[in-house]
Design a protein around this nucleic acid. Structure first.
Length: 420
RNA sequence: GUGGGUGUAGCCCAGAGGUUAAGGCGCCAGGUUGUGGCCCUGGAGAUCGAGGGUUCGAGUCCCUUCACUCACCCCA
């Protein structure tokens, strides 16, 4: 074999496509229901858009981006994340002039140079949505409601909603100081990863999986005790709205999100099954991001889910999909003269909106029927010399095996009635 | 980037240094005139992931490399 799909990428074969259309259709129809409008952004952007937005300390910004220089010397990056491009478009096209908040959603390929593993790819796909331009905590709740509605409407169950607030730039620094002074007493017990986290991304100390680090994290001060009055109130209201909506959640003071732009509300949906790459989706508020991209201070909140991980869960939970309608009619010919007729008939049926496939080649009748059977056609039309002489075709119902002769001119109506 | 496991046909896989690499699924074709499914028979399909090495001889042993996979890391 000369070529293979690049590492961490996959082909989505026809047999897999039903999962994709199922998920994509649900996403689109629910977004419509909640008043979110579709937006598409380019597959590549100015590299600085991602570098700046995901900020210091994150692997995404530092070593996971697909960066390349184009022929004009521009430094570009494949879309590493969905939110920053949407915010860029919001600024670039003056969407802040519309009534706020602006509600947008996207389905997009995302590229990250990581070591592939189950549920983790170098090219994966995300469904995400953003509500930009208002700080109302009811908007946080709406985003969570839509996210949960989406997962439930797919038939998924057994996942939990983890919820936390990580404060804002006013109150977080005090917490970071408290956190670091807590860890200062345990410095030599920490794993090497946590040693670097202390320097680069202290919040990340909280969700280390190492057992001794966990103990230290468990006894660490909780960020919610350090929230400023405004963040405190905001978080209270988010919870209040969620309770009114009847959405169960677990407060998790060790939940911090990977991207650095989050403020206040953060949340994640996780299935119960163990496994490293388990988060199926998550999001939060990012009130400082648009300002960081050169806009006016603009509060916003959003969510993104990995489509591959959702499909993984659909499979492990054995969720059956609505079967898509297959081609309904298979045309069989006996002899070359009959083939002229079936080619013509196929065109007529398709003009009438009936999905039709013609047998090709010069296989035996037996072989053509076997093909129709193996491919699951409910209806078969057979034309041979005798039928041409009589100007009619045989209409065969494959499930019952019953046949009737139909004049060529009446085929369309006969198929329409027999297929309902 | 780090560590463990695995690579034999489209898929599942047997094969513990010695003819022509076995089987199942699937595919194709036959089982007497123009009729599918079940059954029977036959066929096609594998440079054994790739590249080196050891050996008279390597799918089998060694090294390298690539890919998949699990965990770390990170994240969706």
């Amino acid at each position: 074999m000369l070529y293979k799909a690049p590492r961490g990428t996959t082909d989505i074969l026809p047999e897999e496509q039903s999962y994709w259309t199922y998920v994509q259709d649900k996403a689109a129809s629910l977004c419509c229901l909640y008043g979110y409008q579709p937006i598409d952004t380019p597959v590549f952007e100015d590299q600085k858009l991602f570098a700046r937005s995901s900020s210091h300390g994150t692997d995404l910004a530092e070593k996971e981006m697909y960066v390349f220089e184009d022929r004009g010397g521009q430094l570009l990056a494949l879309k590493a994340e969905g939110t920053a491009p949407v915010c860029r478009a919001y600024l670039e096209h003056g969407l802040f002039n519309l009534a706020q908040p602006v509600r947008l959603y996207y389905l997009s390929a995302i590229f990250r140079y990581e070591r592939p593993q189950a549920g983790r790819y170098r090219q994966h796909h995300q469904f995400g949505f953003e509500a930009i331009g208002d700080a109302d905590p009811s908007l946080d709740a709406e985003v969570i409601e839509l996210a949960q509605h989406f997962l439930l409407s797919l038939g998924l169950s057994g996942f939990s909603l983890q919820l936390n607030s990580i404060g804002c730039r006013q109150c977080r620094p005090a917490y970071i100081r408290a956190l670091l002074s807590h860890y200062a007493g345990h410095a030599q017990k920490l794993c090497p990863d946590c040693q670097t986290r202390r320097e680069k991304n202290p919040l990340r100390l909280l969700d280390c999986k190492n057992a001794t680090c966990q103990e230290i994290a468990d006894s660490a001060p909780a960020i919610r005790k350090y929230l400023c009055a405004e963040c405190q109130e905001h978080f209270q209201k988010v919870q209040q709205y969620l309770e009114i909506l009847g959405i169960p959640f677990q407060l998790n003071n060790k939940l911090v999100r990977g991207l650095d732009y989050y403020t206040r509300t953060v949340f994640e949906f996780q299935p119960e099954e163990e496994g490293a790459q388990k988060t199926i989706g998550g999001g939060g508020r990012y009130d400082d991001l648009i300002e960081a991209l050169g806009g006016k201070p603009t509060p916003a909140v959003g969510f993104a889910a990995g489509i591959e991980r959702i499909i993984l869960n659909l499979k492990t939970q054995n969720i059956s999909l609505p079967s898509p309608p297959a081609a309904t009619v298979f045309l069989i010919h006996i002899g070359g003269k009959a083939k002229l007729e079936t080619v013509k008939l196929a065109a007529t049926l398709r003009q009438a909106g009936i999905a039709t496939i013609s047998a090709v080649g010069d296989r035996s009748l037996k072989s053509q029927l076997r093909q129709a059977h193996n491919r699951g056609f409910p209806t078969v039309i057979i034309v041979g010399e005798e039928e041409i002489d009589a100007q009619q075709a045989i209409l065969r119902d494959m499930s019952t095996g019953t046949q009737q002769n139909i004049p060529f001119g009446e085929i369309v109506s006969a198929v329409t009635t027999s297929c309902g």
